[in-house]
């Protein structure tokens, strides 16, 4: 009986957290984000609660949590690696404006005019190519349109656009191409036997392991495979004159309306969007592309710096508006 009471007391103590600590929801890979955040928290002298996403639920899981918690927010900050999702949250009124002075040198394209979010360090949607299967660069695919090229029938892959960057990518394409052209493109992919896998990790592994010659993935997936010595190359697609350009999906950080410890949260945001963070993320295994000029980029020259490639001029706001509709439609077209 006494032991039961003692345990109860212990649990009660554990459950009683006192004043709410600043809490950050993080969608970026935990291996990269945790050490950074630990360091920032130590510098600020705060106990920072970190909640990282899981590969099973991806960013959308955290977004769902934030939406569900809107009346009783648990998070102070959202660090998202899919910009459209943050914009979507802003449109839902979940974010509080904060224009970080540390991001004053960030190009305006990557900042919300109302200060609801600040972008930094981006990933690009690229084509990963197996150089053992396709040794000649002249034969490599160069565009998203290669997905519907009969030459690659059954030989290329893209993740199902249900979550993650592929959802953002396809939603942006839909806005860019218009519903009709996008519909034709999707029909073409199905006719061309494109392999729709469950995630970018899966497409990268299919190419890395030689099961497919090429696939769509993100720069971070490509870079880690390359670092580990696999025979893969990276193609920034749609670089031809007049081409659509390569989609760049930056990280974004935002202050949650009504979240705990907002003052500490702002200080933390200042550190997250700093030049130093961009440089660290570029140097890390994920090889994120800095959005500021003058910040050192990834060491691998295959992961190009901003300015070295044509970036897709996508309408973030419109894409975010369409995100829910796209998600619902894509679930119809790509049932799990």
């Amino acid at each position: 009986m006494r032991s039961l009471l003692a345990l109860g007391l212990l649990f009660a103590t554990a459950a009683c957290t006192g004043e709410a600590a600043p809490t950050i929801y993080v969608a970026l890979d935990e291996q990269f984000s945790r050490p950074l955040l630990d360091r920032f928290a130590q510098e600020l002298g705060v106990d920072l609660v970190q909640r990282h996403d899981t590969e099973a639920s991806k960013t959308v899981g955290l977004v769902s949590s934030l939406l569900e918690e809107r009346n009783n927010p648990r998070a102070s900050i959202f660090w998202c690696n899919e910009l459209a999702q943050v914009v979507h949250l802003g449109q839902q009124g979940l974010l509080l404006p904060y224009a970080s002075p540390a991001a004053a040198d960030m190009p305006a394209t990557w900042r919300d005019p109302d200060g609801l979010w600040t972008g930094f360090a981006a990933r690009a949607r690229i084509l990963i190519v197996n150089t053992e299967l396709l040794p000649d660069p002249a034969t490599w695919p160069t565009s998203y349109r290669d997905l519907v090229d009969p030459k690659w029938k059954g030989k290329c892959a893209v993740a199902k656009p249900l979550t993650g960057t592929t959802l953002t990518h396809f939603a942006a394409l839909r806005v860019q191409l218009g519903d009709a052209a996008f519909g034709t493109f999707v029909d073409g992919m199905f006719e061309n036997d494109v392999q729709f896998l469950q995630g970018n990790g899966a497409t990268m592994k299919a190419v890395r392991d030689g099961r497919l010659p090429w696939a769509f993935t993100d720069t971070d997936d490509y870079h880690i495979a390359k670092m580990k010595g696999h025979q893969v190359a990276c193609v920034f697609p749609d670089q031809e004159p007049g081409g659509l350009g390569t989609l760049l999906i930056p990280n974004a950080v935002a202050l949650i309306r009504g979240g705990p410890a907002p003052d500490v949260a702002k200080q933390l945001i200042d550190r997250i969007v700093s030049r130093e963070t961009e440089a660290l993320l570029a140097a890390a295994d994920g090889a994120q592309i800095p959005l500021r000029t003058g910040v050192a980029g990834p060491k691998d020259p295959a992961v190009k710096q901003l300015g070295e490639f044509r970036a897709m001029a996508w309408d973030v706001s419109k894409t975010a508006e369409n995100l829910a509709r796209c998600s619902a439609d894509f679930h119809q077209r790509w049932p799990k």
Binding site: E55, A56, S57, K58, V60, G61, V63, S64, L66, L67, E68, H88, T163, L197, Q198, G199, G201, A202, K205, A206, L323, A324, R325, C326, S327, A328, H331, K336
Partner: peptide, 27 residues
């Protein structure tokens, strides 16, 4: 295994799949 490339799933996955999207574009 789904992430590895499976094309079918169980109801536990169904529950979780929709839970992750519980506030995004679902009826």
């Amino acid at each position: 295994l789904t992430v590895k490339g499976k094309t079918w799933h169980t109801y536990a996955e169904g529950i979780f799949g929709r839970w992750t999207r519980r506030a995004v574009g679902t009826t």
